[in-house]
Amino acid sequence: MKTTNRAVRTPGGLSIRLDARAVTVVLLLLVTALAASVVLIGTGDFPIPAADVLRTLVGEGNPGQEFIVNELRLPRVLVGLLVGASLGLGGALFQAISRNPLGSPDVLGLGQGATAGALAVIVLTSGSANQVAVGALVGGLVTGLAIYVLAWKRGVHGYRLVLVGIGVSAIVTAVNGYLLTKSDIVDATRAVVWMTGSLDGRDWDQVWPLLALTAVLVPLVLVNARGLRMMEMGDDVSYALGVRVERVRLLLMVAAVLLTASATAAAGPVSFVALTAPQLARRLTRSPGPNLLPSLCMGATLLVVADWVSQRAFGSEQLPVGVVTGVLGGVYLLWLLVSERRAGRI
């Protein structure tokens, strides 16, 4: 699929650009994510067939199933979908802004920053789950701000952003290590579980804030996506084309930090989704540009599938989802490096 100049036009002079392949990818990913969600809801100590899950979701199940589905498993799956979508979109934004696949939140230390915030709450105050989430959010935002301020010099430039991010990440990791050594065994266990990234015990309290935030941020990001597409060609070209580069970049970076930090606050630092989702999405759409919507859908799909794997593959002993995404993401990253090396690009 080489030509992407397709458009749907109305007689009134409106036109929307459509890349048939990207649309197909988005639809397929959505279907996969929803199918995986239904399967995931049916999975657990009390298995429910997919047909019953669907019946319960539209309000026609029996009371027992309704409780399990609506109160226990649906919110967990929704958190998974939202966290995955936020990480996928946040990662795509960061990678597009830094024009570098390594410029993703995992590498830049946003996850570590959020972890520091969460650890501080766990270790220093033994706070509740909600307080931990707030701590993580604050930690992520502060780290994002620090990276932006330190990397800002006539615009945030790709390599500079990555290098500053790695530096910040190293510092914050050291802080995290220190906090862990200071903690007692109960807090430390809780901290380590949190740090792996898990969807266990997530309920509607986590769903609503995430949903509200993504409902605001996703449209905001998509409206600015065309400017971001232009910014791929360098600041000068995009500026010459009438993109207000600095404004678009700041706005999108803030959005990306918020998305990543809130996702981390809800599920812990689930590793590698932000790094891999945009890369996988790009390979599926085979289209240049930031591929925002496909990345978002890919993130959601990845996380739900990983959660299903983590629950199924290891039998009754559940594994935190972060372990699965870490393993899958790590393998994928290595494969990417090896294949790019073969193609002579690295």
Binding site: A7, R9, G13, L14, S15, I16, R226
Partner: peptide, 8 residues
């Protein structure tokens, strides 16, 4: 171009 006039 604009958001609703993407490819005339």
């Amino acid at each position: 171009q604009g958001i609703l006039r993407q490819w005339s």
